[in-house]
């Protein structure tokens, strides 16, 4: 039986089943190839995207540029069924 987990997400351990992994080495290697994430800037155009969505009983595809001409509030949140 597993112990009760704090809320977390799935991720690979970085090694095959049953073999120990030197985690700091694999972490280092991963970081070398990581792109630098930069914040977008106010006063500049928003990055366009399409995304599947649930809206009033229907599954739809939403494209940000379809909302040109309107004010848009785009909200990100950690996950459905979270508490805040």
């Amino acid at each position: 039986m597993g112990e009760e987990l704090g809320v977390s997400c799935a991720r690979p351990t970085g090694g095959p089943v049953g073999e120990s992994v030197k985690t700091d080495e694999t972490e280092k290697e991963k970081n070398i190839f990581k792109e630098v994430v930069s914040m977008i800037k106010v006063g500049q155009k928003a990055p366009d995207f399409t995304a599947p969505a649930y809206h009033k009983g229907r599954f739809i595809n939403v494209k940000l540029s379809d909302y040109l001409g309107k004010w848009v509030v785009l909200c990100f949140y950690p996950g459905d069924f979270t508490f805040v």
Binding site: C9, A10, R11, K34, V37, S38, M39, I40, K41, V42, G43, Q44, K45, A46, P47, D48, F49, A51, L64, S65, Y67, L68, G69, K70, W71, V72, V73, L74, C75, F76, Y77, P78, G79, V84
Partner: peptide
Amino acid sequence: VGAVYGIYDDNAGVETRGRFLIDPDGVVQ
């Protein structure tokens, strides 16, 4: 999409609480 907007937390695997106001011209205000 969250990564492009700079609010995706790669370590936790979730989006943080980012909120963007975008005007009718598509500009982030």
